[in-house]
């Protein structure tokens, strides 16, 4: 930009159609590249600047607020059909910084950095004083509930043996004393009924994922587990233009996409992981 010719960018309104189109393309990219946690939906566009790109196109620099939905990352349900996690369920928000190229009327993401944070305990308590709050994903009771629920699933499976991929949510319910947990599973090459050493079971090359919700209730002299799982159809690998730029390290605990599971320790909400990690 020649000296004295202005800032070199324009600032459309955050609710302009062009801004919203760029933001929706950005959120779509985030969800297409999520490997952990839940899909997010656009909540508010905080800031936008549009830079001319040489020789062609424009680059939208966006700051977006998102909210976690109830759809697991690999759930093929269209985002429009995914319910937003409500405050009484302990909502989770995402803060994203995105760069989206618009060229020939098409949007493609150049850069993405997101960080997710659960709502404060005070906010949840304001609308629901007795609702269970999110627990740490490595909480002993949460881990035990997921493992017990998965054991119940495998005990009843007349097909594949399933392995735990990640625990995505956990809540400790005081009355009745119970633990609510949501977790992802994947089918292995073992038959559930014939497994002797689960450690030898390998995830199928064409991964078959499932998502489970379970409640483990503490009873006198034992415990009872109720679990429901949804298995997803095998998804074709999404072919997406990938960013040229390296994605800087997120301030949030981020999980490597290649890792089989997110860290057990860390905040209750998994960090959003988008784009190729460098």
């Amino acid at each position: 930009v020649p000296v004295g010719s202005g800032p070199g960018y324009r600032e459309p309104a955050c609710d302009d159609l062009e801004t919203e189109q760029a933001a929706l393309a950005a959120v779509d990219y985030i969800n297409q590249n999520l490997r952990h946690g839940y899909k997010h939906t656009l909540n508010q566009i905080d800031k936008v600047r549009v830079w001319q790109r040489r020789p062609f196109g424009e680059v939208y620099h966006l700051e977006l607020d998102t909210l976690e939905t109830q759809c697991y990352a690999r759930d093929p349900t269209p985002l429009a059909n995914c319910s937003v996690r409500q405050v009484f369920e302990h909502a989770v928000e995402g803060d994203c910084e995105m760069q989206v190229l618009k060229q020939d009327g098409q949007f493609s993401v150049l850069f993405a950095k997101c960080h997710s944070t659960p709502d404060s305990q005070e906010d949840v308590r304001k609308v629901c004083p007795h609702c269970p709050l999110l627990a740490l994903l490595n909480n002993t009771k949460v881990v035990h509930a997921a493992e017990a629920a998965l054991a119940a699933v495998n005990a009843q499976s007349n097909g594949s043996y399933f392995k735990l991929l990640e625990i995505s949510r956990g809540q400790l319910v005081p009355l009745p004393a119970s633990t609510y947990v949501e977790f992802a599973v994947a089918a292995t090459d073992c038959v559930a009924a014939a497994v002797t050493d689960p450690a030898t079971c390998k995830l199928l090359a064409e991964k078959k994922h499932g998502f489970c919700k379970a409640t483990l209730t503490e009873k006198l002299g034992g415990e009872e587990v109720a679990v429901t799982c949804t298995m997803f159809q095998t998804q074709p690998v999404a072919v997406q233009p990938q960013p040229d730029a390296a994605i800087p390290a997120s301030p949030a605990p981020a999980a490597d996409q290649a890792a089989p599971a997110p860290p057990a320790a860390g905040p209750p909400a998994a960090a959003l992981v988008v784009g190729p990690m460098v």
Partner: peptide, 27 residues
Amino acid sequence: KGAQPGVAGSAGLVPPPCPGRIRHFKI
């Protein structure tokens, strides 16, 4: 006292360009 209705009126109608609307709820 004289007023400047054009200025006051237009200032009241123009929404702030950013941030945009909240689609669900703010936390």
